[in-house]
Amino acid sequence: MSENYSENQLLLYIYDEMEAEEKSAMDAELQVNPQLQKRFLEFKQTIKMLDELETEPSESSIEFIMEHARKLNNIELVARA
């Protein structure tokens, strides 16, 4: 297995995009391959940092969107009447 191939495979494993059989093989490989373990931990650490980046819009943005949706409903109700 080339280095690139195993790292791409490792990403599929981390993001849970592997078939069950491939996943089991990767589980087994991780048990015995210290280099792969090291890269696994490094990827996981960096991905964990990305998880912490999430931010959210203001309440006023949500209210603006809902107001738009309500207006569309009213227009539709009037059109139907």
Binding site: L53, T55, E56, P57, S61, I65
Partner: peptide, 28 residues
């Protein structure tokens, strides 16, 4: 989905106020 959509926009524009505008536009 507001967090993932807003974060994706914010990381591209780097400006919260602009990200809010684009987020609203996206949902419209």
């Amino acid at each position: 989905h507001k967090r993932s959509i807003f974060t994706a926009i914010y990381l591209l524009v780097r400006d919260r106020s602009l990200a809010e505008d684009i987020f609203q536009e996206a949902f419209i």
